[in-house]
Design a binder for these strands. Structure first.
Length: 321
DNA sequence: GCGACAG
DNA sequence: ATCTTGTCGC
C-alpha cells in the first residue's frame, strides 16, 4: 500500500527544515590566493586592501595568517602585500623582512628605511572579486531569521569544544550518562581561518560531526545570538542541525553591558553568569538558560569537560603524528 | 601608546 | 584557538 503524501502532508512549511549553509565547505584560502595573484608584478597592495576584497576589513589579520601559510610562494607571490602605512611588514621566510625588500626591489619597487616609496602610486586595489565574506555575512543575517526561541525542554545536556594542532582540528563532544562522562570526537584539517564574527565557518561543521545525533541541549564554545548579525557559532549549529543550543563564551564580542545582560541595540542577547557570556543559539531563550544554570550548576561544567577532552585528544593522538 | 577584534 | 598574523580608534 502506498501513502498519498499529498493527503498526509498538507504543507512542507509545517515541518522544521534545517537551514543548509552555502558555505559549509567554502575554501576561503584558495579564493584569497587567487586574489593575491591579481596584483600586477610592478604593484603593491596592503593587508587591508585584501581584506576589503575578501569582503570585510575585520579579516586583515587573517590575511597575514593566510600569507604566512602560502603553500605555493613561487606561484602566489606574497611579498607585495605590505602594511597600510607603507612599511613593508613581515615576511615568513628564513631571511625575513630583508628578503621581502630584496624581492620588491627586484621588481623595480623602491624601498627606503623599510618603507615603499611612492606607495600610493604603486598601490593596487582593483581586485576582481565577489566579496565572499559579504556573502557569508548575508547568509548569517538570513540564517538568524530562522532562530526559534521556544524551548522543547530536555533532561540531557552536552558540550562541544575544538582544539588545534596547526590547522588540524579535533572536536570533542561530551555528555553525561549516569555518573559517567561520555565523549565522541571528530577530526579534520580545517582551511577556513579564524576571522572574528565568522567563527562558524571554521568550527561549525566539525562540531556537528562530534555532536552526531545527540538528542538533548548542546552547550557550544562560542556565542549564540550575541553576535553583530545575531548568528554566532551556537546559532549556526542549532539552526543547521535543528537542535537546541546555548552559546557559552569566555570573552566579549561587541555590545553593551547592562547589569547582568549584554545588549546589542535594544535586543537583550546574552547574560553574564560566573564570568561566562551565555546566549541562546537556537530553540531556547534567555529565561530558559537562566532557569537551567540556576537549577543545576553542573551543566556549565560540561564545557570544561569538553575542553579537557579536546585538549587531551590533541596532545595524545594528533601531536605525535 | 594600548585595547578591541567570539575561538 | 595557538605560536605571532594587522588595523583602527581612543
Amino acid at each position: 500500500m502506498e501513502l498519498n503524501l499529498k493527503t498526509f502532508i498538507p504543507s512542507l512549511d509545517a515541518y522544521h527544515m534545517p537551514y543548509v549553509s552555502e558555505f559549509a565547505s567554502f575554501d576561503l584560502p584558495s579564493y584569497f590566493y587567487s586574489l593575491v595573484r591579481q596584483i600586477p608584478v610592478n604593484k603593491v597592495s596592503t593587508y587591508m586592501d585584501l581584506a576589503i576584497a575578501l569582503g570585510d576589513t575585520i579579516a586583515a589579520r587573517a590575511v597575514g595568517k593566510m600569507l604566512s601559510e602560502n603553500p605555493e610562494p613561487d606561484i602566489t607571490e606574497c611579498f607585495r602585500i605590505i602594511h597600510s602605512d607603507g612599511s613593508v611588514g613581515n615576511y615568513t621566510h628564513p631571511l625575513g623582512t630583508e628578503e621581502k625588500i630584496r624581492r620588491l626591489v627586484a621588481c623595480g619597487i623602491k624601498v627606503e628605511d623599510e618603507h615603499v616609496m611612492d606607495f600610493e602610486k604603486l598601490r593596487f586595489t582593483e581586485f576582481k572579486t565577489e566579496f565572499p565574506l559579504k556573502r557569508i555575512a548575508a547568509e548569517q543575517s538570513r540564517m538568524s531569521k530562522e532562530f526559534v526561541s521556544e524551548y522543547p525542554g530536555s533532561d540531557s545536556f552536552g558540550a562541544v569544544d575544538v582544539s588545534y594542532y596547526g590547522n588540524d582540528a579535533v572536536a570533542a563532544f561530551v555528555w553525561r550518562e549516569g555518573n559517567e562522562i561520555m565523549a565522541r570526537f571528530a577530526r579534520s584539517h580545517v582551511t577556513f581561518p579564524y576571522i572574528p564574527t565568522y567563527l562558524s565557518y571554521r568550527e561549525g561543521e566539525i562540531m556537528k560531526r562530534a555532536i552526531g545525533n545527540f538528542d538533548g541541549t548542546v552547550l557550544v564554545d562560542g556565542h549564540g545570538i550575541y553576535h553583530p548579525r545575531f548568528c554566532g557559532l551556537a546559532c549556526y549549529i542549532g539552526i543547521t542541525a535543528g537542535i537546541p543550543t546555548i552559546g557559552v563564551g569566555k570573552s566579549k564580542l561587541k555590545g553593551n553591558i547592562s547589569g547582568k545582560y549584554i545588549m546589542i541595540g535594544d535586543r537583550k542577547v546574552a547574560m553574564i553568569h560566573k564570568g561566562r557570556f551565555l546566549s541562546p543559539g537556537n530553540r531556547i531563550d534567555l529565561l530558559d538558560i537562566e532557569k537551567i544554570v540556576g537549577h543545576d550548576d553542573t551543566v556549565l561544567k560540561l564545557t570544561d569537560e569538553a575542553h579537557k577532552a579536546a585538549t587531551h585528544f590533541k596532545n595524545t593522538a594528533i601531536k605525535k603524528e
